[in-house]
């Protein structure tokens, strides 16, 4: 029933998206973006899961198995686990930049309401 994880990841993504498009508070917008990022972690790790699989580790094969058995047997997908690590680092970088912008907006406009940040309005 890994599809439950997929649907949960989609729900978390939609909650984050709703915060981004429907909230005016820049801190909540950044929180929404973080939720959207977190949903991708859940999706990637869930997609890497295989029923009855072992971890993609060749150092200590399960009892009764050799390293070769692990290589050709049922293991979790290591490529998607790697994607998850990549997504986490990029998520941290993006969140740091957005939080810095949010603090600067708050300092400049004395407000975290995106509707007050109108300096670039044409």
């Amino acid at each position: 029933m890994i599809v439950v994880n997929y649907v949960a990841a989609g729900c978390v993504f939609c909650i984050g998206l709703f915060a981004v498009v429907a909230r005016r508070d820049v801190i909540k917008i950044v929180m929404g973006l973080s939720l959207m990022e977190a949903s991708t972690y859940l999706l990637l790790v869930s997609m890497a899961y295989r029923r009855g699989a072992t971890a993609p580790l060749l150092s200590n094969p399960p009892s009764g198995q050799t390293q070769r058995d692990v290589v050709h047997g049922t293991v979790s997908d290591p490529v998607l686990q790697n994607f998850c690590l990549t997504a986490i680092v990029i998520g941290i970088a993006v969140t740091a930049v957005f939080l810095t912008l949010a603090v600067r907006v708050a300092q400049h406009y004395r407000s975290v309401d995106a509707a007050d940040a109108t300096a670039l309005r044409g």
């Binding site: 939609c14 498009v21 429907a22 005016r24 820049v26 909540k28 708050a106 004395r110 309401d113 995106a114």
Partner: peptide, 20 residues
Amino acid sequence: PHVQAGWHRPWLGGPLVLAV
């Protein structure tokens, strides 16, 4: 100060998010 920042067109964002 952020407690005063309210919603931005939720009637538009809600259906958009449901479609996504």
